[in-house]
């Protein structure tokens, strides 16, 4: 009797390597795509790199008329708005995550978590509209005067109240990155084993001590990862920022004054860039932004534990 289980002809032998090969090619495509983006940016940025060298990174002039280009005002704006966003969003995000993972009953934490995921999905131009029509007047009329009256001895909180400016952009960004911090931090905290919580409670810890001594230390790298992911988002955010930051290629002392960011200047001036050097300078800014985002995202990936990364 013929033994079919070990049958001589195995007709599908050639299919496996083919299938493997095809999937490999498509996977390779992703890698090539990334390299291609980096490479094209580099090629198109070359004229500006050749002309300005490293001066591009620390020069403060951005003058399309005389074709003098340098990136520091945009680097500064991107960095400082991201820092303002993190300083505001991280504490709020952590408190919300702790509440959702440790204290909130399920009937409350489920809808809140759902809303938070929804917030992350709102297109950034909508945030921009809210920023322009709600946040900007609020900043000009209330928040900036209040800050100036209370902590106005700090130079960054001095000067006229524009409404549009660095501080406004930073605060709008903080709203936009909050969902990222919360949803990942919450997931990471929820993944702390219940046995660990019970172990510290059985030693007579209060709930706060449990959070502080067990949940937070065990979630630390994931929380830092979520912050880096939020940072990457803040650095690259374009639309909403450009609507409220004032688009002024300068390094103002006061946070109330208009500034500019790397992403915003590219979006704003790309269509007007008539000369090759102008275009090349914008692309070089894009290259810097690409590299910074790449590194920040990489750090986030390393820090956020595998199971939670999907977000």
């Amino acid at each position: 009797m013929k033994n079919y289980a070990r049958g001589g002809n195995v007709p599908y032998r050639w299919e496996d390597p083919l299938f493997k090969g095809v999937t490999f090619l498509f996977a390779l495509f992703i890698l090539l795509l990334t390299l291609f983006i980096a490479f094209s940016l580099l090629v198109h940025a070359t004229p500006a790199i050749k002309k300005f060298g490293f001066e591009f990174l620390w020069g403060t002039t951005w003058d399309p008329v005389s074709e003098q280009f340098s990136a520091l005002p945009f680097l500064y704006g991107t960095l400082i708005t991201a820092v303002i966003a993190l300083l505001t969003a991280v504490p709020i995000g952590l408190f919300v995550s702790i509440f959702l993972s440790e204290f909130s009953p399920r009937w409350l934490s489920d809808p809140i978590s759902y809303l938070i995921d929804l917030l992350a999905a709102i297109p950034s131009v909508i945030y921009g509209i809210i920023g322009l029509f709600v946040l900007v007047p609020l900043m000009r009329g209330n928040i900036e005067p209040a800050l100036s009256n209370s902590i106005g001895f700090l130079p960054v909180f001095q000067g006229p109240f524009y409404g549009v400016g660095i501080l406004t952009a930073g605060l709008l960004l903080s709203m936009m990155i909050l969902p990222f911090i919360i949803s990942i931090s919450r997931e990471v905290m929820l993944s702390v084993p219940q046995t660990q919580r019970e172990a510290i409670l059985s030693l007579g810890a209060t709930q706060w001590e449990m959070v502080y001594k067990v949940v937070m230390p065990l979630s630390r790298s994931g929380i830092i990862g979520s912050i880096f992911l939020a940072l990457a988002r803040a650095l690259g955010e374009t639309m909403a920022v450009t609507m409220v930051i004032g688009n002024n290629p300068d390094i103002p002392l006061s946070f109330f004054e208009p500034g500019h960011t790397m992403a915003a200047v590219i979006a704003n001036e790309f269509t007007e860039a008539a000369s090759e050097l102008y275009l090349s300078a914008l692309i070089e800014i894009g290259l810097i932004l690409f590299l910074v985002s790449f590194v920040v995202n990489g750090i986030a990936r390393i820090l956020i534990p595998g199971g939670v990364r999907a977000a």
Binding site: T195, Q196, E198, A199, I200, L201, S202, L203, G204, K213, V214, P217, L218, R220
Partner: peptide, 18 residues
């Protein structure tokens, strides 16, 4: 305060990893 007067050891060892 009750838990501080009572010691407890669980099924699986639960040392705090950090």
């Amino acid at each position: 305060l009750i838990r501080r007067r009572v010691g407890m050891v669980f099924q699986k060892p639960t040392p705090f990893p950090t």
